[in-house]
Amino acid sequence: MAGYFKSILTGTKSLVTGLKITQAEFFRKPITLQYPHEVLVMTPRYRGHIQLVKNPETGTHQCISCGLCQKGCPSGCITVRGEKREGVKGKVLVQYDLDFTTCSLCGQCIENCKPGAIEFSLEYNLASTRKEDFHYDLLARLEEQK
């Protein structure tokens, strides 16, 4: 019988301790962000999908179509194609496709890129029900930015 009352007492004490803590939380400001009404700004190092860097001087990309990004990619999600054009030194980039469905955002492509032609974007609002929506034509995206 003594054990019965003792357990009621310890149970009540434990309950009161818990309630005290939760009660204190009741008066705190909410910490939840009301997405999508409030939107976070990503940190500069955030890894979104890759994009071509725009050179402010020339107004275009700095890619030399060497294909090292494509070669270094563990998932094979990058397709780069360059072609020789008369009067132009080196290759001219004609296609830069990214299949974001298989990208694991490891950054091997960016590290392999000698001219620094690609970077991580800060985009994260990327929901879709169609696979094709994640096949990005990075060259066309750069053109759109102009």
Partner: peptide, 12 residues
């Protein structure tokens, strides 16, 4: 960790 590594969970 995100401010340093760029990712929140699957770090590389």
């Amino acid at each position: 960790l995100e401010s340093v590594t760029g990712s929140r969970l699957t770090y590389c």
